[in-house]
C-alpha cells in the first residue's frame, strides 16, 4: 500500500522541499554578503564594481541565478501550500493562545516574516537587479556602486529606503533564526553532537549576515562607505 511516488505530495516531502530550498537560499546569502562586503573597502567601489561585473557576466553565475529563482519560487509555493493545509487542519481556532509559553514568536511567524521578506525582495530587485539586467542587455555603461549610493542618499526617499532595508534585514534575521536550524531538522539531520553546533552557527549566522547587510545602506547614508 505504500508508494514512494507520493513523496513530493506528502507532508514530509513538502517540508523536505522547504528545508532544502531554504538552506540553498542560505548558501546564496553567503555569496551575496561576501561580495557586498567589498563595499566596506571604501575604495570608491572599484573592487566591488569589478566583482559585480564579473557576477553579471559570468555564464555559470547566470545559470545558477536561474536555479536561485527556481529555489525561491519553490520555497514560496510550498510555503503557500503548507500554510493553506495548516489552516485547514484547524478550522476553528482557539479563543486564547499562550504561544509564548511553548515557542518563540518568530518560529510561529515564519509566514509573516517570509511575506515581509518577499515584499522587501521585490523592492530590492527593482532597485538593483532590474537596472543591472537592463544595462547588461543594452550593453550600457553602468556603475553599480554609484547606483546603490544613489538609492540611499536621495534625500527623504533615501531615508525611507534605508529604513525599509533595515526592516528587511530584521525580517531576514528572525526568519533565519528559526529557519536555519529548522532546515536541518526537517532534513532529518539531527545529531546529539552536531545539532547543538548547528544551532549555534545558525544563531551567529542569523545575526551577523543581516547585520552586515543592514550596515550597507546605513553606511551609505552616514557616509562611512565612500
Amino acid at each position: 500500500m505504500s508508494n514512494s511516488k507520493g513523496f513530493l505530495k506528502s507532508s514530509i516531502g513538502r517540508k523536505f522541499v522547504m528545508g532544502l530550498t531554504g538552506l540553498f537560499l542560505v548558501s546564496f546569502l553567503v555569496v551575496h554578503v561576501s561580495i557586498n562586503s567589498l563595499l566596506f573597502l571604501c575604495d570608491g567601489g572599484e573592487t566591488f564594481n569589478a566583482a559585480a561585473d564579473f557576477m553579471a557576466h559570468n555564464p555559470v553565475i547566470r545559470f545558477l541565478e536561474i536555479g536561485l529563482f527556481i529555489g525561491l519560487i519553490a520555497h514560496i509555493v510550498q510555503a503557500l501550500v503548507l500554510t493553506l493545509a495548516n489552516k485547514k487542519a484547524r478550522p476553528q481556532g482557539y479563543a486564547q493562545v499562550n504561544g509564548a509559553a511553548n515557542s518563540t514568536w518568530y518560529s510561529r511567524s515564519m509566514g509573516l516574516l517570509g511575506t515581509l521578506l518577499l515584499l522587501f525582495l521585490v523592492m530590492h530587485l527593482y532597485h538593483f537587479w532590474w537596472p543591472t539586467k537592463v544595462a547588461v542587455f543594452t550593453h550600457n555603461e553602468h556603475n553599480t556602486f554609484e547606483e546603490i549610493k544613489a538609492v540611499f542618499t536621495d534625500g527623504t526617499m533615501g531615508v525611507i529606503s534605508v529604513v525599509l532595508y533595515v526592516v528587511g534585514c530584521l525580517s531576514l534575521s528572525y526568519h533565519l533564526l528559526h529557519g536555519f536550524q529548522s532546515g536541518f531538522q526537517t532534513l532529518g539531520l539531527n545529531h546529539k553532537k552536531y545539532t547543538p553546533v548547528i544551532k549555534k552557527i545558525g544563531i551567529i549566522f542569523s545575526i551577523i549576515v543581516p547585520l552586515v547587510f543592514a550596515l550597507m545602506p546605513i553606511g551609505f547614508m552616514a557616509g562611512f562607505i565612500h
Binding site: 507532508s11 517540508k15 503548507l82 495548516n86 504561544g99 518560529s107 515564519m110 536550524q181 531538522q185
Partner: peptide
C-alpha cells in the same frame, strides 16, 4: 505518514511547541 496525512493533520514547522 500516509495515514497521518490522510487524517488531515497539519504540517510541522519545527516551532517546538
Amino acid at each position: 505518514v500516509k495515514q497521518m496525512d490522510a487524517e488531515g493533520f497539519g504540517n510541522c514547522t519545527n516551532t517546538g511547541a
